[in-house]
Amino acid sequence: MASKIKVGIVGGAGYTGGELLRLLINHPQVDIAFINSSSNAGNPVSKVHADLIGETDLTFSADLSDNIDVLFLCVGHGDAKKFLSENTIADHIKIIDLSQDFRLSNKSIIGNRSFVYGLPELNREAIRTAKNIANPGCFATAIQLGLLPLANAGLLNEVYTTGITGSTGAGQALSATSHFSWRANNIQAYKTLEHQHLGEIGQSLLQLQKNDDIDISFVPWRGDFTRGIFISSTLKCDLSIEELNILFEGFYATHPFVAISKAPVFLKQVVNTNKCVIQLEKVGTKLVVHSAIDNLLKGASGHAVQNMNLLFGLEETAGLKLKAAWF
């Protein structure tokens, strides 16, 4: 049996770090070497992530080590670039960054490290041979997976997208709009038409539909639930619903975490999984593509583990065969 992958995690105390730990402590090919968190150094992991009591004896550390194969950066936007600027990471260590710092091609290089955009359903072969991965954003993942087959067929034009996300998408640090009392029985549109994920979405779609005629208008919403993202993208299309379902099923035939549903999609199908479930609806020439993911798994940490599996030549689904939180 091959030796296990030695993993280091920076920023293990937040939501994405916690989800990553839940996955990696049960991954058959992983040993966690350290979990860096200066604010929690010396504390048991289960003191911060109480659901892991009895699951692991790991503690947080303020130290780093070069005796690892891959380093996950679960830090805030801007902090990954700062961390790599201030710390020397040995050349043999691969990096998977969950922030937005290296997702755009014009910002994908720091020092001698170049990052590949880690959307396996678009860049799987490039990921297999990469050294460093920029993990996609949560909204970006859900929107792109709903649009990639259309871009591949040259069918995108004006796209109107709405999406709603759970409160965990805002991170663990409290803000005015992440308190329970504010979120409960409440929704709000935010960052209308200027969400930060639009750049990476446009970049990916242009890989497949090589013209600049794609115009995406995106209105994101804050929802009064904790986990999940639900997207609806509307555009004009002349293909029949039967032709479109064949198109989507063919595009995703070899991708294990995308499922095409003929029945209505809902969040409980995907929460606690690394899946994206897509449903198509058509009235006249108007096509609506619904896509749903768990923002902390396929939208963040599960996606990162999927990328790690590809980087190290493992089965893509290793450690990710998760059941939805159905009830």
Rank of each mutant, 00 (worst) to 15 (best):
residue 279 Q to L: 04
residue 312 F to R: 06
residue 300 A to C: 13
residue 248 F to G: 04
residue 286 K to G: 01
residue 296 L to C: 08
residue 57 D to A: 11
residue 164 I to K: 08
residue 199 G to H: 10
residue 204 S to A: 14
residue 157 N to I: 06
residue 320 L to Y: 02
residue 317 T to D: 04
residue 83 F to Q: 03
residue 104 L to T: 02
residue 101 D to P: 02
residue 173 A to V: 09
residue 195 H to L: 00
residue 13 A to S: 12
residue 35 I to H: 06
residue 299 G to M: 11
residue 316 E to Q: 15
residue 24 L to A: 01
residue 215 D to F: 05
residue 29 Q to S: 08
residue 284 G to E: 10
residue 233 S to T: 04
residue 198 L to V: 08
residue 11 G to A: 01
residue 130 A to M: 05
residue 123 N to K: 11
residue 235 L to K: 08
residue 218 F to G: 11
residue 274 N to Y: 11
residue 26 N to W: 01
residue 237 C to T: 08
residue 85 S to P: 03
residue 55 E to Q: 12
residue 15 Y to L: 09
residue 125 E to C: 09
residue 22 R to W: 00
residue 268 K to D: 12
residue 144 Q to G: 03
residue 24 L to W: 06
residue 142 A to I: 10
residue 136 P to E: 07
residue 140 A to S: 15
residue 27 H to Q: 04
residue 128 R to Q: 15
residue 177 T to H: 08
residue 150 L to D: 06
residue 222 R to N: 12
residue 288 V to H: 10
residue 311 L to A: 14
residue 157 N to E: 13
residue 157 N to L: 00
residue 38 S to A: 14
residue 143 I to N: 05
residue 287 L to E: 04
residue 2 A to V: 08
residue 161 T to E: 08
residue 151 A to T: 11
residue 150 L to K: 03
residue 206 L to Q: 14
residue 189 A to S: 13
residue 12 G to L: 04
residue 156 L to F: 10
residue 92 H to W: 01
residue 57 D to P: 14
residue 6 K to F: 04
residue 122 L to F: 06
residue 100 Q to N: 14
residue 12 G to E: 05
residue 9 I to P: 02
residue 269 Q to E: 15
residue 51 D to F: 01
residue 89 I to P: 09
residue 216 I to K: 12
residue 38 S to Q: 13
residue 36 N to H: 05
residue 273 T to V: 10
residue 267 L to K: 12
residue 112 N to P: 06
residue 111 G to I: 00
residue 194 E to A: 10
residue 129 T to P: 00
residue 100 Q to W: 02
residue 113 R to I: 08
residue 297 L to G: 02
residue 207 Q to W: 08
residue 131 K to E: 10
residue 266 F to C: 13
residue 175 S to R: 07
residue 162 T to C: 10
residue 198 L to H: 07
residue 274 N to F: 09
residue 324 A to N: 14
residue 231 I to W: 03
residue 86 E to K: 10
residue 181 S to Q: 15
residue 65 S to M: 10
residue 250 G to W: 12
residue 38 S to K: 12
residue 265 V to P: 07
residue 33 A to M: 04
residue 318 A to R: 00
residue 303 H to R: 03
residue 324 A to G: 11
residue 48 V to L: 14
residue 9 I to Y: 02
residue 61 S to H: 09
residue 119 L to K: 05
residue 324 A to Y: 07
residue 41 A to I: 01
residue 91 D to R: 04
residue 123 N to E: 04
residue 84 L to G: 08
residue 301 S to P: 10
residue 186 N to H: 15
residue 200 E to P: 01
